[in-house]
């Protein structure tokens, strides 16, 4: 579903991604782990072209993303993204946050969009907050709204960029539970995370990145359980 070939990304002289090859299958949940500065987030952001890649190719459903002829806005409607800092629109109510893109991009009628938004809010357990503003919500609630907002475009793929890193510890679980539910429903997901327990439990594949490379990749039991790789061992030794 996502095919990544020889992905390179530099910021000025700093090479952050030094050649990534990977394929994500449909309905697969892939967790990306690794020390900070290893290029995890950049890797994720390259997939929907929030970062322009320096070299390489990315295909989503066999459409080349970094082709000048490709309409990137169309690709992005199929790829939902959830950010570390939530990035809800503070001047809109929760329901307006969710309905904005379906109305503006999908040309959905306002009524239908609101019906869809309320369904999604039920799903993330926040229906009663529909008419509140984001700053009246806790961090965990905001992130669940952000997930609902991304889901409103009915994407085929969901990208999560450290979705729980900005949350107070007691709010992490409510967000992870929503993500777990999504995974069980068969959503294709790529998740950059520091939640090792979550990765081990939910992921179909785990990628360990370090220094701009994929150092190791495999089933979570292989990576967490009995890795042979020294760098993976050193990293997991520090975080587990």
């Amino acid at each position: 579903m996502i095919k990544i070939k020889n992905l390179h990304k530099s910021f000025g002289n700093l090479e952050v991604l030094k050649g990534i090859d990977y394929e994500v299958q449909e309905k697969e949940v892939v967790c990306v782990i690794g020390p900070s500065g290893s290029g995890k987030s950049t890797f994720l952001r390259c997939i929907n072209l929030l970062e322009e890649m320096t070299d390489g190719e990315i295909y989503i459903d066999d459409v080349k993303v970094n082709d000048p002829k490709t309409n990137i806005n169309e690709i992005r409607t199929e790829v939902g993204m959830v950010f570390q800092q939530f990035n809800l629109f503070p001047h809109m109510t929760v329901i307006e946050n969710i309905t904005m893109a379906p109305i503006q991009v999908r040309k959905m009628a306002k009524k239908d969009a609101e019906k869809l938004a309320l369904e999604l809010l039920d799903k993330v357990g926040l229906r009663e907050k529909a008419y509140n503003y984001p700053d009246q919500l806790s961090g965990g609630q905001q992130q669940r709204v952000a997930i609902a907002r991304a889901l409103a475009m009915k994407p085929k793929i969901m990208l999560f960029d450290e979705p729980t890193s900005a949350l107070d510890p007691e709010m992490v679980k409510e967000v992870l539970d929503v993500m777990k539910q999504l995974a069980e429903e068969g959503m294709t997901m790529v998740i950059v995370t520091h939640e090792m327990g979550f990765a081990r439990e939910v992921a179909d594949r785990v990628i360990f990145m370090d220094g701009g490379y994929i150092v190791e990749e495999g089933h979570p039991e292989e990576v967490f359980g009995h890795t042979q790789n020294e760098r993976t061992k050193a990293f997991l030794g520090k975080v587990l």
């Binding site: 806005n73 992005r76 503006q104």
Partner: peptide, 23 residues
Amino acid sequence: IDKGQMEAARSLGLTHSKAMVKV
């Protein structure tokens, strides 16, 4: 305005000008 606002709007498929006007 935080850069994340534009990124969030673009990640939902809005064009640059639409993101500007709406967000």
